[in-house]
Write a protein that binds this DNA or RNA. Structure first.
Lengths: 89, 89, 89, 89
DNA sequence: CACTGGAAAATGCCGC
DNA sequence: GCGGCATTTTCCAGTG
């Protein structure tokens, strides 16, 4: 009766503790990351650009180019839309 | 003609303008909100605490539900796999 | 005695309600914005790029160029660092 | 020499590599966390509810404090401008 | 005037 | 493949 619940309860507790443990470790690393950024900032680096560099390195080059050209397409589409009839210039 | 490049320039413009319009309105309201806080501050209220009160009021309804069903939640978690009162399957 | 508290209480309530009212309106507009993006997506536009276009339009050109060139500086600094002794090439 | 352009390339590289290293470790832990959830799911637990339980446990201590001092908070808000028991100033 | 903390936005992920 | 959720990132106001 209370048997299967007890067992599940123990299991549940174990799961929760494991997850909380891992989350704790993640938090430590996240803090470490922040510190590195802060240190970099202290050395005169621009944190925002730094993040962008890291983001770029994560992305594969093909994908990057594709996004860049799509952006160009959009920008040109905006400029080339209706204003001043340069439609097919 | 420029063909595949000229992708719906007019449509794109329309979308962008609509979004920018909405963002403009949001900005106005955000400013109004700030003004209310400032006015409150001028009347001797502590803005930080005011924000906290509002935050709590937002969370409270949700919180109440969660609190009320905490035990249920645990019980469900323990045998969440049997959805529909399959007691002991 | 309870006098000044009462008055302040009314005032407090009024402030809170005004803010909550404004926040409600902001939420509606935010939802509207989301819908526009979703509609655009339904028409084949890339939401992420769309967001970038809008972000770019908000930023003044000078600032934009500055960021872009700083990014270049960083990227070149990475490539030109130690590897393969091209230090002063 | 390239002068002002060659801005601390080595330093920059070191920073980036450190960050990427830490992010790698975070990713491993994140994956571990996911695995725990998956394992739990395999044992009949409802992942969504599990997440909720963990979230509540995180919020609970803070929540308790906030709840306990709600009245205080309101009272402070009402005369927050007099910090240090200036009774009726 | 840079730092800190908190609100708002954006991105990525997971399940359906 | 899409919509919703959770995390992460960015922005901004207050503060020393």
């Amino acid at each position: 009766m209370s048997g299967s619940i007890e067992i599940a309860g123990d299991q549940l507790r174990a799961i929760i503790e494991r997850i909380e443990q891992v989350e704790e470790e993640i938090k430590e690393l996240t803090d470490a990351k922040k510190e590195i950024y802060m240190e970099a900032k202290g050395n005169g680096f621009d944190v925002k650009i730094l993040r962008e560099v890291i983001r770029m390195r994560k992305q594969d080059p093909a994908e990057r180019d594709e996004q860049a050209s799509l952006l160009d397409v959009y920008l040109q589409a905006i400029n080339g839309a209706s204003p001043a009839g340069k439609k097919a210039a």
